[in-house]
Design a protein around this nucleic acid. Structure first.
Lengths: 111, 111
DNA sequence: AATAATGTGTAGGCTGTCTACCTATGAAGG
DNA sequence: CCTTCATAGGTAGACAGCCTACACATTATT
C-alpha cells in the first residue's frame, strides 16, 4: 500500500469504525486492521491527532473510562458525526467513480 | 471533491490517459477531465512536475513536436510505464477494497 | 526479571499537491 | 490593428496531512 494513499480518507475510516458503538484509540486501530483484512495499519501518530481534530469539529465526543488502574479514552459519534460519515461515504463513491473511470475507462466513452 | 483526495493516485491517472497513445500536457488535462465526467480538474502546476518525475523514473518518455510555430511536448508510455500502469491498477483495486471494506463493511464480517 | 501486549500521546519531518504567477502562439471579433 | 479567448508549457513557494520516531505507563506472559 502506497504510504500516503489514504490521505483525505482517514476521517471516513475513523467515523466508520465508530458507527457500531464507542471505541478507544487502540481498538480503532485493530478494528481498521481487521476490517481491511490487514491492509490498513494505522499508527498512533496518525489517529490521535485526527481524533482530536474530529472532536474539535464536533463529529466525535470522548469520555475517559477506567479498567482497573488503566485509563482509556472512548470516542463515540455525535449526530454531526453520523451526518459526516454519510458525507464521507458519498464523497468516497464519487471519488472512486471519478478515478475508476479514468483508470479503467468504459469502451464506449470518449478518449 | 476534497482537495487532496487524489494524493498517491495521480501517477495512475497520468499513465492511464497515456495508454491509448502519446499526448501533450494540455491534452492530458482535458482527457482526465472528460473521462471523469468533469469531476477531476488537474492544474498545470500539478501535472508538469508529476510528468517530469515519471519521466525521470523511466515510466514516460517525451519528445518535442511542433505545430506551426507552436511547440508542444508529447509524452508516451515506456515499457516500464505500461508495467507501472498495471501496478497502479492493481494497487487501486487493493486500495478501494481496503477502504471500502472499512467504510461499508459486509454484514458478515467481524466488527 | 524480562519481554510482549495493551494503551495514550507528542515532536518534527517529508512530500506531493495546490495556489498563484509568468510566458507565448493562434484564431476570432470588433 | 487591437483585444480577448483558447491553446500550450512552465516555475516558486506554501500548506496540510500523514508518517517516523520517540516517550511513558499498566498488565500479562515467559
Amino acid at each position: 500500500m502506497k504510504a500516503d494513499a489514504i490521505r483525505g480518507h482517514l476521517d471516513g475510516l475513523l467515523l466508520a469504525v465508530l458507527e457500531p458503538g464507542p471505541r478507544h484509540g487502540y481498538a480503532i486501530i485493530t478494528a481498521v486492521q481487521q476490517r481491511s483484512g490487514g491492509a490498513l495499519e494505522l499508527r498512533t501518530g496518525t489517529i490521535y491527532p485526527a481524533l482530536n481534530r474530529l472532536e474539535r469539529l464536533g463529529l466525535l465526543r470522548s469520555t475517559w473510562d477506567s479498567v482497573g488502574e488503566r485509563r482509556r479514552r472512548c470516542y463515540e459519534l455525535t449526530d454531526a458525526g453520523r451526518r459526516g460519515l454519510a458525507d464521507e461515504r458519498s464523497a468516497w463513491r464519487a471519488f472512486t467513480t471519478a478515478i475508476g473511470s479514468v483508470l479503467d475507462p468504459q469502451p464506449g466513452s470518449a478518449t
